[in-house]
Amino acid sequence: MALIRNGFLAADGYSPVPADAPLPATGPLLLTLPQWQAWRTELIERGTPVGVRLASDEHPEALAADTNHLSLIALEFPSFRDGRAYSYARLLRDRFGYTGELRAVGDVLPDQLLYMQRVGFDAFEIDSNDPVADYEDAIGGFSVVYQPSGDERVPALRLRHG
């Protein structure tokens, strides 16, 4: 499994915490939602980097008040067919003002990276022999978009009229 962050191969840096384990003393952590909710106050005080990994049936509204305290939110695709996280990503970016790393994890196919990037993901865990090439192929495949989304691309209906 490789991690692509902002188009580059990257080291993860965040460590998950096993269920029932106590809060580790230090280091960037990737927590489940219940873990985050249990340790929230302590971690905010501590100020070390914290990420939360949401399952596909956990609505990101649960993090709406916490977006300033998190440097990573990972959204899970239990199957590549489950498209809920595309809408979750848009809500996190547009509605809840989240600006940190938004990572796609789970059943993430290279052919879906453009869609994911357009709705606001900037990091992807993919299973690939050449993840950077796959990423560049996917993202660079289209120079025209028809609709505004969670990215900076200007849709055709605006470009046409200056």
Binding site: F80, R81, D82, G83, Y86, S87, R90, Q112, L114, Y115, M116, R118, V119, F142, V145, Y146, Q147, S149, G150, A156, L157
Partner: peptide
């Protein structure tokens, strides 16, 4: 036509239920 263009390759709604 407007709805057609809006819906084509719309990234958020390519994997609806």
């Amino acid at each position: 036509e407007l709805i057609r263009q809006y819906s084509i390759l719309n990234p958020e709604f390519a994997y609806l239920p």
